[in-house]
Design a protein around this nucleic acid. Structure first.
Lengths: 198, 198, 198, 198
DNA sequence: GATGAATGAGGTTTCATTCAT
DNA sequence: AATGAATGAAACCTCATTCAT
């Protein structure tokens, strides 16, 4: 990548991050390209040198968020771990990614319906892949006899995602709990019902 | 209420319901007054005979949703029940209300940021009141020794709401589980970690 | 006139007066039929039983104002009086009518441009007739040798009307001067330059 | 000022002048942004590149008119002149400014009530400052013994403004009198009653 | 007579996007 | 690379007016 291209890529990143911050704060529709530009000390027109459209900006935010989640989850899935430990790691990773990239993930969770059809499908495909990591582990755990077979893995996945994703509504850096504490807490609570007790 | 007034009230209700349906489907900003009107076989201007503004329509949806939740929760809270049973009822009622009034509650959960400041405060006030029912019961349960004291009631409340509210993303009438089954399932799963076992 | 017709005529009058008051306060365009109705404790639709249109309401105000001015001026013109006295009376009458019917005359002076073409012509015709009373007296006075011939009657008329009509901008019932005092003052000031001194 | 900025400023000026012309002709409310745009061979939206709102356009017209009057009057007030000469100059200047900037001043005199509260206050403040130039000179003249003490300066000011401002109703470029002739004529007529004769 | 309900017609404003420079 | 200028398209909202009851 040439120096030129690299700088352009950096600019793109900066635009995406800023867009995500503002999208998170005000919602996609209440954010104007002008605002994003002003925040970056660009002009409105300049933004269009780097991105093709506002909707594309939203898509890139969604996509970046999904890629982050996928990459981290894939690393965990690749490890050799018992199902209960793996699920715990997946949950903790999700919580921590959400906190690390609050704006990006919030946009992913909150603004999906503003995507156009094509982009939505692309995101849904990745999301399905991501969610499958959870159901797969749950199924494995049932087969391995460490998880209660009473709970449908699909349902458990939905409960877990609901509980965890809701965080974007209330998480605050200045809250009493640290990132890892929250992650542990969620993992403990959400695993409790499925772990088989002797 | 006179015949006239009653019909007008019904019309208002119909507008709210239709608006909620479309808001849910496409989001507040991607819904035009024209669409709502067309759906009701009204003209755009006629809508404005019944409501003062589009934002007001959104507020009314939010408010009606909150009122429903509050009314049902108040009935439960008023009963003489042990904390664990009461919490179970509160959860079940929440799930069932969400299913009964999917559009209204989805709008409440999804479109809040489009409210203006004044309206948002009104909704937040009711929401806080509603959520307090849950933390109160949790605290009572801890005091009564039926709930684990390890879990912070605020945190448990957030987990419960997250898990349950997430339903608007996936619930479908044609799904395999019936309303009451889902309600029981959620109550079981979410109560499990807090219930003290001997 | 039957009782019915009489009551209708009274209603019309009331509507005109109220309309004039509000037109004066907020201007024709910023006044809605609804406001006029509310002030009269009517409904919007009821107004239309008595008047054909909003513009017509404006015209009737203008017309009533002109008729008042004309009637009072005609009475003065009909008297046998020397030109200087007659002019003085005309000025005083104008001032006093303006004060007596502040809303009506203000509408006449301020909102003329909102009339439609046809109505404007009708008002202009009356206005021209009214103004001619002033130029006629001025010309008679010059011929009679009581007025300076140096001043063009048309010009003097414009100065007089300007000075006097401006009153609607500043006149207030609670001001320090009484109606007659103002009238005398204007007559004194405005006649001074034209009266021939020996 | 750069070339760019200068051209933008010129465009703004052009919009204001054109707006003033049309406001004068048809009144503020009967003028649409579209009409102003069409006259300038702009599109409606382009107008909004230069001005924030229609009401703002009106305010700028008012403000520019007041600034013109103030600037010219201040120059006269700054001179060392006897009160009667100074008043004469103030009147002449007012007449001539009105003729030079007929549209702007007409808007100022005719459309004030369409301003919003905040803007109205700003204009009133300038107007009060402007009118004070006249009452000050009148008071000085009374003290200096060149003006009759019988006339209240406030009242004289109102008569002068009334007579002169009325011009926007009748002045026409094609009229028989030239600008300076009208100015002299007004000054002569309106000063006559106040000048003390030995 | 009176009015609740309905609407056509239009106006202001916003904004993503384009393009010449 | 960057941007000032321009605009098409659309959305919200208002209101005078009508009409069935």
């Amino acid at each position: 990548m040439s120096f030129r291209e690299e700088r352009a890529a950096q600019r793109r990143q900066a635009i995406l991050k800023t867009a995500a911050d503002i999208f998170r704060e005000k919602g996609y529709h209440d954010t104007t390209i002008e605002e994003i530009a002003k925040e970056l000390k660009f002009t409105k027109a300049s933004i269009y040198y780097y991105i093709p459209s506002k909707e594309d900006l939203l898509f890139e935010c969604n996509d970046m968020a999904m890629n982050l989640l996928l990459k981290r989850a894939e690393a965990i899935v690749a490890e050799e771990l018992p199902p209960d430990v793996k699920l715990r790691e997946l949950i903790k990773q999700h919580v921590e990614t959400l906190i690390d990239e609050l704006s990006l993930i919030t946009v992913l969770l909150q603004q999906e319906y503003a995507l156009n059809e094509e982009h939505r499908q692309l995101i849904y495909a990745k999301r399905d892949r991501y969610e499958k990591f959870f159901t797969d582990v749950l199924e494995k755990g049932v087969q391995a006899g460490v998880f209660e077979e009473a709970w449908d893995p699909k349902m458990v996945k939905l409960i877990i995602f609901g509980a965890v994703n809701w965080m974007f509504h209330w998480y605050s850096k200045s809250g009493p709990l640290k990132k890892h504490e929250i992650a542990e807490l969620f993992a403990d609570y959400l695993l409790k019902p499925v772990i088989k007790t002797k």
